[in-house]
Design a protein around this nucleic acid. Structure first.
Lengths: 191, 191
DNA sequence: CCCAATACCGAACACAGTGTTCAACAATGA
DNA sequence: TCATTGTTGAACACTGTGTTCGGTATTGGG
């Protein structure tokens, strides 16, 4: 069941971590995976396609808006999100860090924006917002989230527990949200 | 006075806006600039080098931390910063948008981080912070700033006045800052 | 005005990487 | 067993990079 595919995905994952997505050539990948050149192209259209396949392994199980209850605390799921990405750290670093291919970054951004959008429309406060302001807020939430992820994934910080990252995220991001939504949120202090 | 250099810089600026940095070839540039191939390499090492030269035109005059008074309002200069980048919109889009070459993006980030760092160390509140927390906050400030810039520079939004962008930035970002620094800031409401 | 320094030109080249093709070989399983 | 499916690697055409070099403009100081 896809031994070659798996070998190729692992090879690219490793190589990205070693020298960055741009620096990896198809030759590097097939050498590392010990696979023939034509075999690579039998499985994937190109390097980007392989990257997308790796990205597909980065599912976000359980982070499904349809499972949210109407009276869950606002943005209570950010910790689960950090935890999830933390559990696939290696993959995330290789695939969605700001250094990697921008294809994967866009994909991840799009998924997170859906999540944020769903949450905002769940809160009654969002009704007051026109689509313009709503888009601004969604971008803010997702942009800062990925910013924290990038920071977390750096060598110096990747030992930190998801709880601490989430705490920092909430202390810095949620107050702004509460401000513009005129909403009461539980705000962690102190960092 | 560098007529050829200027032609090359303008050519690349145009071309980035048309098809993105990655998609532009040296051939494209010299065709557009009507310059010989070897002439290009007589002036610049490669495409990245030319990009850096363009970046150098993106100075931030007057945004010099040494000119700040001790009792200026905290982060009072963000509007000036948005105004400045707005005035070189075309250049910024070509050079420092997240779609362009990451070289320039890193440069710009580094410059802004210095600015934020200077401001935080000016505020007494920063003394309470260890370097770890300080770095977190700096990254938050700069990350969000560039996030707002990217958003502003999009086709649909680039008609907005700097004041409105700055207002949105301050409403969303400063509350978080006030929270973790336990600081009183003038917070704009509403978005 | 002259002419030498400097800037520019463009063709040709070596090189690296991409993506395709093809004939042959290997593995597998009904 | 044998047909299917997966794999191999060499050869190829192609695009783009960066260098070299002989020759041609431009230009500014004497």
């Amino acid at each position: 069941m896809g031994k070659t595919r798996k070998a190729l995905k692992e090879a690219l994952t490793d190589l990205i971590l070693e020298k960055g997505y741009e620096g990896v050539t198809v030759q590097d990948i097939i050498d590392r995976a010990d696979v023939g050149r034509s075999t690579f192209y039998a499985h994937f259209i190109d390097k980007d396609d392989l990257l997308m396949a790796i990205l597909a392994d980065l599912e976000m199980p359980g982070l499904d808006p349809s499972s949210w209850k109407p009276d869950d605390p606002a943005f209570g799921w950010t910790l689960a999100l950090f935890r999830h990405f933390g559990s696939v750290k290696r993959l995330f670093k290789a695939v969605a860090s700001s250094q990697s291919g921008s294809v994967a970054r866009r994909e991840t951004t799009a998924r997170l924006e859906k999540l944020a959008q769903a949450e905002l429309s769940r809160l009654k406060a969002a009704r007051k917002l026109d689509s313009f302001r709503l888009e601004t807020i969604v971008r803010f939430l997702v942009g800062t989230f990925l910013g924290f992820m990038d920071w977390w994934m750096r060598e110096e910080n990747d030992h930190l527990p998801a709880e601490q990252v989430d705490h920092a995220y909430r202390s810095l991001v949620l107050p702004g949200l509460a401000n513009v939504l005129e909403l009461e949120l539980e705000l962690p202090k102190s960092l």
